[in-house]
Nucleic acid binder design. Structure first.
Length: 267
DNA sequence: GCGATCCTGGCC
DNA sequence: GGCCAGGATCGC
């Protein structure tokens, strides 16, 4: 469900937990913990305060006093919700962090495509997921030639497929990949090797703009996306192609995923 | 590179 | 019952 804009909005919405001390935890028996254990997570977090929230691609990082980070991916169906007061645990809750003031953070993920992991290094090189990620769309240290080089190393990929590859540019999902290609007026089926550097630059600019707009509209709520306080996004009202059959927009399938585009505009 | 697969739920 | 879903990985 959540792509970069949704994760960024969730991150901003949860600033309320910064400074809170973690007093206890709940993990379901099906919690999607990867390459670590509930025990290790408890040991790492217990008694410590949340130092801040960060984001890398679609991963949300809960930064812990002392330098460790709890690395969360929400997959297709994950939500991270803050509750101020006691409350019945809802179905598919896989992790809860109880703060010393009685409030809590709940991870709810019916499909369990998300992941929970740990990282202790600033650069994420010790984390199976973070280590694979490509550039941030707004990386201040990356130049156009860096983005171009990343794309050029996958000449045979269709543009849409390249956008979904988190090792090239991190954070785009199915909605924003389709929207960025529309904004750049590029056919999602064209291969990387068939587009010019100029067209790639146009695509990068479209990616930045598309993700920025997504964040400003507080994410896309097609079905069930909400931020950390259960507030829906508004971007669904401004999508140009995704889910918009008709008026020249068609749906095709690439890599087993739906691609929505407008053949008259995108070439 | 492509298709199948993990999982649950909603909709037709 | 079948199809679809905002993700990512793993075979071939």
């Amino acid at each position: 469900m959540p792509e970069l804009p949704e994760v960024e909005v969730i991150r901003n919405s949860l600033r309320v937990v910064v400074g809170k001390a973690m007093a206890s935890f709940y993990f379901s028996s099906l919690a999607p913990i990867q390459t670590t254990s509930a025990k290790a997570i408890r040991r790492t977090l217990l008694g410590r305060r949340i130092a801040g929230l960060d984001r890398r691609g679609k991963y949300l990082l809960l930064m812990v006093e002392g330098g460790a980070r709890l690395v969360l991916h929400l997959g297709m169906s994950g939500k991270l919700l803050y509750f101020k007061h006691r409350r019945e645990r809802t179905k598919h809750t896989h992790m809860e962090i109880f703060f010393s003031d009685g409030s809590r953070l709940s991870l709810i993920d019916p499909r369990r495509f998300g992941t929970i992991s740990l990282s202790f290094r600033q650069d994420g090189a010790d984390n199976l997921f973070l280590q694979k990620l490509g550039l941030e769309y707004d990386d201040p240290n990356a130049a156009d030639r860096d983005y171009i080089a990343r794309f050029r190393s996958h000449p045979g990929l269709a543009l849409k497929t390249a956008l979904l590859n988190q090792g090239i540019v991190a954070g785009l999902g199915n909605i924003y990949a389709c929207e960025a290609l529309y904004r750049a007026r590029l056919d999602p089926r064209r291969k990387v090797k068939e587009v010019s550097d100029g067209e790639l630059l146009r695509l990068f600019e479209a990616i930045r703009k598309t993700l920025d707009i997504g964040i400003r509209r507080r994410g896309t709520t097609l079905r069930d996306y909400v931020d950390g306080h259960a507030t829906r996004g508004q971007m669904q009202n401004f999508l140009k192609v995704y889910g918009r059959r008709g008026r020249g927009v068609v749906r095709i399938v690439q890599q087993n995923r739906a691609t929505w585009f407008c053949p008259q505009v995108q070439r």
